[in-house]
Design a protein around this nucleic acid. Structure first.
Lengths: 175, 175
DNA sequence: TTTTCTGCCGAATAGTATTCGGCAAGAATG
DNA sequence: CATTCTTGCCGAATACTATTCGGCAGAAAA
C-alpha cells in the first residue's frame, strides 16, 4: 500500500481565542509589566498556563509586540497632528512610503474618502511640521495636504481586546 | 537663628535626557521584552545602571506605560477608520467623551482645523461603524461626521524617541 | 469503551531583576 | 585650589520570576 498520507491535520488556522485568551489580551494591552503569577491571578490560571498561552498568542501574531509608550512632550515632540495627503494617480507611490523614515511619522494609512493617505505625526514644533509638509509636497503626485493639529488628546490607547457585540441596544456602555 | 531653610534645591524639573536615556527609550519603544542585560549591551551600560535609568524614566513619566500591541484583525476588529466629528459650540462636550468607553475607540483628540474632534476607531465590520456613527450623531451638538476608512496600514508604531533636528537640509533620511 | 490529544497544574530549575557597597568623576563649597 | 558632597556607575550577592518538566484529567477521535 501507499497512500498512508491521507491523514488530514485536525484543525487548520488559529484557534479562535477563548475567554482566557481574551482576558489575558485585555490585561496585557493595558499593562504588559505584570508577572505571569499576577496575570494568572486575575484571569484564573496558573503561571505556566498563562505563560504557554502568551507564548502561543505571540507566535500566532495576535500579540504583535510589546512596547514602551513614551510621552511625546517628554521626548521633545509636543505637537501631534494628522496630515491628510491628496495624491494623484494612486496613493501609495513608493516615494510616499519614504517619509515613514522620519521618526516623527507614527502612522501611515491609505484611506477611502477624500484623502488618499492619512499620516499621524508628532513634531517638535510648528516649524518642523512645516518642513515635513514641504517634504511631502515635494513628492511627485502630491496634489495637496490638509493638517489637523491636536489641541488635546483625551484618549490614546492600543488595540483593545474587547469587542462590542450588542450595538443596536446599548446607548452607551456602563462605566 | 531661624531661616536655615534657605537652601534651594539644586535642580528642579526633569533632567534633560542624555544620550543613554535616548538609546534606552528608542530600544524600549521598539521592543520592551528585552532583558536589562541585553539592553545594557546595546546602550553601553551595566544591567543595574539600565535598570535604574528605566525606573527613573518611568517615575518621571517619560515612559508612560508598557503595553502589548494586539493585531486588530486577530481580535475581531479588522476595520480601522478615522472619524472627524464636527461639533457645534465647543467640541469637548462631556457627552462626547463618553464614547471613549467603547473599546472600539482608540484615540480621541480635539483638533484645530475644519473638524472639532478626531477619533481613531477599530470596528468589527462596516455595520458596527454605522452603529457607532449613530451613537455619535445622537449626541447633542454634533453637526456631522466624516469618516475615512483605512484600506492599508503601512506604518503603525508608538512614539519614537528620535527627533529630526536638521530639517531644512535632508531631503530624506538614509535607510 | 479505548485511545489520543490537548491543556492544565505543582514542583523543580534556570535565568532575570533588584539590591547593596564601594568607587570615581564632577559640582558645590570654602 | 583643597575639600566636601552628590551623582551615577559597576561587580557581586540576593530575591524573585520565567520557564521547563512530568503527570494527570477531560474532550475528541477511533
Amino acid at each position: 500500500m501507499e497512500n498512508t498520507e491521507d491523514v488530514r491535520p485536525k484543525r487548520r488556522g488559529p484557534a479562535p481565542l477563548d475567554a482566557f485568551d481574551r482576558r489575558i489580551l485585555a490585561a496585557l494591552a493595558a499593562d504588559a509589566d505584570r508577572s505571569y503569577a499576577a496575570l494568572g491571578e486575575t484571569v484564573g490560571l496558573s503561571p505556566p498556563a498563562v505563560h504557554e498561552r502568551v507564548k502561543r498568542l505571540k507566535r500566532s501574531g495576535v500579540i504583535r509586540d510589546t512596547v514602551a509608550r513614551l510621552d511625546g512632550t517628554a521626548v521633545g515632540k509636543p505637537l501631534t497632528a494628522f496630515v491628510h495627503v491628496e495624491a494623484a494617480g494612486w496613493g501609495k507611490s513608493e516615494r510616499l512610503m519614504q517619509i515613514a523614515r522620519f521618526p516623527e511619522v507614527e502612522e501611515l494609512h491609505s484611506v477611502a474618502g477624500d484623502a488618499s493617505v492619512i499620516l499621524k505625526v508628532r513634531m517638535e514644533n510648528p516649524q518642523a511640521l512645516e518642513f515635513l509638509l514641504g517634504q511631502i509636497h515635494s513628492l511627485p503626485g502630491v496634489r495637496g495636504t490638509r493638517s489637523y493639529i491636536a489641541l488635546s488628546t483625551y484618549l490614546d490607547r492600543p488595540v483593545q481586546a474587547e469587542v462590542t457585540t450588542d450595538w443596536p441596544n446599548v446607548p452607551l456602555p456602563p462605566e
